[in-house]
Nucleic acid binder design. Structure first.
Length: 424
RNA sequence: GUGGACGUAGCUCAGUCGGUAGAGCCCUGGUUUGUGGUACCAGUGGUCGUGGGUUCGAGCCCCAUCGUCCACCCCA
């Protein structure tokens, strides 16, 4: 067993018992996005390493130590995408999608980070992401958040909390950052090792620390609001007001800081308490500087990404049977003549019943075994076709989910009867 | 990258003081010549993650290694 080849650490198979829920999730999200006029974009999962270094930020953990980076045969440094925004921006720029126009885009697929796996955190994980370009006002920020809220409703997902914050403009953040660093340095003796390390690189993240020993000191730390200009303030106010009027509750969390460097102004996160330490199920914000940072003309942008593994986990936590599918009809086929007939009959039934799940028993086996399979398939009805029926030109229809007795049908009445029964 | 728990049948697990492996589920067959969902009986299935070591003897003790899980960190 152990000598057999195993999946790469932190990379998992989605098995058939789980794939229906994945499909339901993906289809629900795609449906909501379509209803807002968003279009799917598909990018390669490999990009030049430089793209991620320039977009995510050189000093982030992702770029410093979590990227799957390797040399192509011609010596180019390539990286398996650790997130989707960078590649999406690259694709949009490269194909002229950002030239004097707005875009509402979404994408889906695997991302790769070389982290230590734990609950809700994997080395290959899947995201559905949304990126919008060319819209500077807070309306699009609000729209994007409203979309996420509608997605949860479409999925029947409740109990998520929306947290919202603003990081201000790059300039506003810089002055705040200076003040914060001064404050933290004044309390240097209270900082833990992690926080001291972050003081130089990413001091805002210290505010997010889980260390209770620093709680009091951090609570008294200066906040962003004093450094926010009127425009940034109005931007946030518009979003808050829109969410309130649309009936989407939120919590302002001044400590909310996104991990990636490119965010500005709006940041938000949907969190759950059902997932242990990895409670963020969806996160995003505005990143007005990124396109320019990657060599384009300045283009305002807003986006978010949701983690599908985490959403699947929450959905299963709420309803362990979520996504379970079952057959509608199971054909029990006894003997070679019936096996030959059965597949053809199955085709006729599927022609008459599009979208229904109709399973023909294959592989032989006794009546008992076949009925056991029929039961396990969840089918409402079984059709029984054997030598006796073939000879008599009949077929047996047996209800599997009620006490009703089975009955014999003429062969040419089968399709009509099954159609009638299944639509009842 | 750091810390902790854990790897025994396809799955969930038991296995005492070291004495060459067990249950339930699943699957197959039977009780019922062709009837599931209930019951009973029987059967298939394991190099005890892997590699070393200690021992007359290791699932059990020791070391290493791979993997899983949980937390830190980080993040979706």
């Amino acid at each position: 067993m152990a000598k057999n080849i195993q999946a790469i650490r932190g990379m998992h198979d989605v098995l058939p018992q789980h794939s229906p829920l994945w499909q339901h999730l993906e289809q629900s999200v795609a449906g909501v996005l379509a209803s807002y006029g968003y279009r799917e974009i598909r990018m390669p999962i490999l990009e030049q390493t430089e793209l991620f270094k320039r977009s995510i930020g050189e000093v982030t953990d992702i770029v410093e130590k979590e990227m799957y980076t390797f040399e192509d045969r011609n010596g180019d440094s390539l990286t398996l995408r650790p997130e989707g925004t960078a590649g999406c921006v690259r694709a949009a720029m490269e194909n002229g999608l950002l030239h004097n126009q707005t875009q509402r885009l979404w994408y889906q697929g695997p991302m790769f980070r070389h982290e230590r796996p734990q609950k809700g955190r994997y080395r290959q994980f899947h995201q559905i992401g949304v990126e919008t370009f060319g819209m500077a006002g807070p309306d699009i920020d609000a729209e994007v958040i409203l979309i996420t809220s509608r997605i949860w409703r479409a999925l029947g997902l409740d109990g998520l909390e929306l947290q919202l914050n603003t990081l201000g403009t790059a300039e506003e953040r810089a002055t705040y950052r200076d003040e914060l660093v001064n404050y933290l340095q004044a309390h240097h003796d209270l900082l833990d090792d992690d926080s001291r390390r972050r003081l130089a690189g990413n001091p805002l993240r210290i505010l997010d620390s889980k260390n209770p020993a620093m709680r009091e000191m951090l609570d008294a730390a200066p906040t962003m609001s004093a450094h926010m200009g009127d425009v940034s303030r109005a931007h946030l106010d518009f979003i808050c007001e829109t969410l309130t009027r649309a009936g989407v509750p939120f919590v302002l969390n001044p400590r909310l800081v996104r991990g990636l460097d490119y965010y500005s102004r709006t940041v938000f996160e949907w969190v759950t308490d059902r997932l242990g330490a990895q409670g963020t199920v969806c996160a995003g914000g505005r990143y007005d500087g990124l396109v320019e940072q990657l060599g384009g003309k300045p283009v305002p942008a807003v986006g978010f990404a949701m983690g599908l593994e985490r959403l699947v986990a929450v959905l299963e936590e709420i309803d362990p049977d979520a996504g379970a599918v079952s057959a509608d009809l199971y054909l029990v086929l006894m003997g070679t003549a019936a096996e030959r007939e059965g597949l053809v009959l199955g085709e006729a039934l599927r022609n008459a019943l599009p979208g229904r799940e109709i399973v023909c028993h294959c592989g032989g086996g006794g009546m008992k075994a076949q009925f056991k399979r029929a039961d396990r398939s969840g089918a409402r009805y079984a059709l029984v076709l054997g030598d006796a029926e073939i000879e008599a030109g009949t077929i047996v229809l047996k209800p599997l989910r009620s006490d009703e007795e089975q009955f014999v049908l003429a062969r040419d009445a089968v399709v009509a009867t099954v159609v009638e029964r299944l639509s009842a």
